[in-house]
Amino acid sequence: MIRTEHLTRKFGHITALDDVNLRIKPHETTVIMGGSGSGKTTLLRLLASLECPTSGNIYFGDESLVGIKQKRLYELRAKMGMVFQYSALLNSLSVFENVAFPLREHTDLDDVIIQTMVTMKLEQVGLRGFEDMMPSQLSGGMAKRVAFARAIAMDPEVVFFDEPTSGLDPISAGVISNMISDLTKKAKMTSIVVTHDVHAGLEIADHVILLWQGEVIIEGTSDMIRNSDDARVVQFIEGRPDGPIPFSRSETAFVDDLMHKPGTVRMSS
């Protein structure tokens, strides 16, 4: 479904993603995990073509998304949906209008049909009856559900989820996780989820990609990840504060800085 080749993204001197080669299979839930700063959000934004890579290529189906004409990209976006970390509901519009937004913009359906479709989508996320509320009146969990309903309004082939469970209480997080795996199975969607929530991630994933410092350190099924011997993987999954992924992000030796000898790079252990 989506493929990347030697995908690299740099921000100034910082390399957020380094030579990432991925293959995302259709009708599966792919979970991209990693600590903060590991480049997972950047990867998702690149896959959704919200940003351009520094080098390398991304293919959606057979088409390259790099250097694509905006018109064609917008046509492809009809097949994509995205649930953003902070829901990104349009705050001037009601819940109903938010879910109806893509339908109104890209179809000529009349109001009755749109009404029916929105009601169906809201029922799927368990928020039927909340049509008239404004985004500012919604709790984080509800907003995320509305964002979910909006993302699937056009029945997309691929849905991107950016941290779908972060900032939610355990129950809401569970509900969202369930909805993702349910919809992937029932609607034959391809879901790509970025999360640092190890538990929820492994739960719903058909395929897991673990990123560390812009590189893929392991990919495979949830069980493969759980049973991995790689010290970095084990540390991440168990959430230990120090290990091969160091606690300190400083790049110079502490002693040198104390002695006012800047610029000495710390030896890697």
Partner: peptide, 18 residues
């Protein structure tokens, strides 16, 4: 600015709105 912070601008992009 708030649309930028809350990713609404990106959301518009994803819904094929320029």
């Amino acid at each position: 600015g708030i649309m930028r912070v809350t990713e609404q601008l990106d959301a518009l992009q994803m819904m094929a709105i320029n």
